[in-house]
Design a binder for these strands. Sequence first.
DNA 1: TTATTTGCAAATCCTTTGCACCCAG
DNA 2: CTGGGTGCAAAGGATTTGCAAATAA
Lengths: 130, 130
Amino acid sequence: MRLTQQRTAILRLINQSDRHWDAEGIVSALNRDGQRIGIATVYRGLQALEQAELVTALQIDGRKHYERADKAHHDHLICLHCGAIEEFCSEEIEKLQQQIAVARSFAVSHHALTLYGRCQRCSSRDEARS
Amino acid sequence: MRLTQQRTAILRLINQSDRHWDAEGIVSALNRDGQRIGIATVYRGLQALEQAELVTALQIDGRKHYERADKAHHDHLICLHCGAIEEFCSEEIEKLQQQIAVARSFAVSHHALTLYGRCQRCSSRDEARS
DNA sequence: TTATTTGCAAATCCTTTGCACCCAG
DNA sequence: CTGGGTGCAAAGGATTTGCAAATAA
């Protein structure tokens, strides 16, 4: 994979933040910084970077989002009210998953665990209102 | 919600099988059975049936799939090679998820856990070939 | 140099919507 | 009777692709 200007810009953007980015958001952010880039280039770049394991993909609401790959593996909590994404990791859950897979001779290559609901911030806002 | 001919047909199709159906597949299956139905009707019907909790939705590869709702809660194993979908359920994992959520004051409304990899059948086929 | 990558626009895929007509309640 | 449901076709959003020009190695 060729590390071009554009791909470097995408990578820097993702690596310098803790956010989860979608293609559209990357184009806007880069344009805002004066860096012009086509949406197709972003999609192709993200694919390449994902394959190279330089970024990690996450499907949210039918749309692909990307985050830094230099973090430890983790799963997600997504607030259905404000869209906030929190992260968590549980050794125990990972172990149990492995056990289940082994018992069925299923070779896991990766997994996705997402809890959907209402985050603390949104819950307390509700209480205040009532 | 009105239980029309079309919706009844969709529901029967899903309930009489253990498969995971997408909109396109439902149209084909019903057409094959001589039942004509428009794709828009299927999408709208599935939405209504999901809200009525008569079917359960599952996002696979950016596409929504539906299955019977009269089954106990479960998670999925998806074979990246043949597309087969297996099901599993782990009380322990569910409990751990709850603990994690409680610790963060996150109110879980639902969750999705999917393990991606290679199923037993595909793995043994590979061994045979080598 | 030359195989990749870019940018644009057009195409594709899945899903939703507008609207006139139809039918379940 | 009448409001929700249907079917068609057109619109929509996200993503991919074709192709000529640009560029990294």
